[in-house]
């Protein structure tokens, strides 16, 4: 079985790729997917820690994170639909009413 650090590296790479997606993409849908990627990376790290300490608590946290991510996806996508109705676009740079 590969050591714990391998799992942490995969988790880190996934997190950073998700982070690049959130920072560099202007498509609101892809930004949401980047957030999902980052949450998943954190889940992987939690599961690895849980396995190495033989404690079930890490897996409980993953369980809760998945539930919260589902809620976040539902509300986030509803916001995307509402914004698209108003502006006819999903380009994040067009949603700038608050700093005009």
């Amino acid at each position: 079985m590969p050591p714990e650090s391998h799992y942490l590296m995969v988790s880190l790479v996934l997190f950073l790729v998700g982070c690049v997606g959130v920072l560099a993409r202007r498509n609101l849908l892809v930004v949401l997917m980047g957030i999902e990627l980052m949450l998943n990376a954190a889940n992987l790290a939690f599961a690895a820690f849980s396995r190495s300490r033989l404690l079930v608590d890490g897996e409980i946290v993953v369980f809760f994170v998945i539930a919260v991510a589902a809620a976040e996806a539902a509300v986030g996508l509803a916001i995307v639909v509402a914004l698209y109705r108003r502006k006819e676009t999903v380009n994040l740079d067009r949603f700038n009413v608050l700093h005009q």
């Binding site: 050591p3 650090s5 942490l8 396995r51 033989l54 079930v56 897996e59």
Partner: peptide, 20 residues
């Protein structure tokens, strides 16, 4: 962070003891 992680290559305990 890769340098930090490479420091501790802890192996997992072999027996999962019904975890998960």
């Amino acid at each position: 962070l890769a340098r930090v992680f490479a420091g501790g290559r802890t192996a997992f305990p072999a027996d999962a003891k019904g975890l998960g």
